[in-house]
């Protein structure tokens, strides 16, 4: 059964800092969800994931996460990804607190 492909981003954790990172269209890693490449095609998703997984010296645990287009770039769909893109809710720590992100 082929279901309609839901758009994805490639995400992982940075090896050194552990922080959440996303793969950009240029093949670099960004800390901002909105700067990630929104992948709309299943074959490309598999390619991009393979590219990410090969970078074991940079990132850990790459996977594809559902995303959707938004006014400033891709947005997370699932609440887990929304938390990953922001940081914890009990302290103003993590991405939400990082100046580069505002």
């Amino acid at each position: 059964m082929s279901r309609k492909f839901t758009p994805k981003v490639v995400t992982a954790n940075d090896l050194v800092e552990g922080d959440v990172v996303y793969l950009t269209e240029a093949g670099a890693w960004t800390r901002r969800h909105a700067a990630a490449e929104l992948i709309e095609d299943e074959a490309r998703a598999a390619d991009r994931l393979a590219l990410a997984e090969a970078q074991t010296g940079t990132v850990v645990g790459a996977y594809l996460a559902d995303a959707r287009p938004g006014p400033h770039g891709p947005e997370p769909v699932h609440f887990r990804e929304a938390f990953r893109s922001r940081g914890p809710s009990n302290y103003f720590h993590g991405k939400q607190a990082e100046a580069a992100n505002v």
Partner: peptide, 28 residues
């Protein structure tokens, strides 16, 4: 050795876990 690329994550993970180091959502 992990940082200089001599160990892959698959090799390193059991070693870090033996020393109480996890990777969580936002950080180690």
């Amino acid at each position: 050795r992990r940082l200089d690329g001599s160990l892959t994550e698959d090799e390193f993970k059991p070693l870090r876990l033996m020393n109480g180091l996890y990777l969580q959502l936002h950080a180690y």
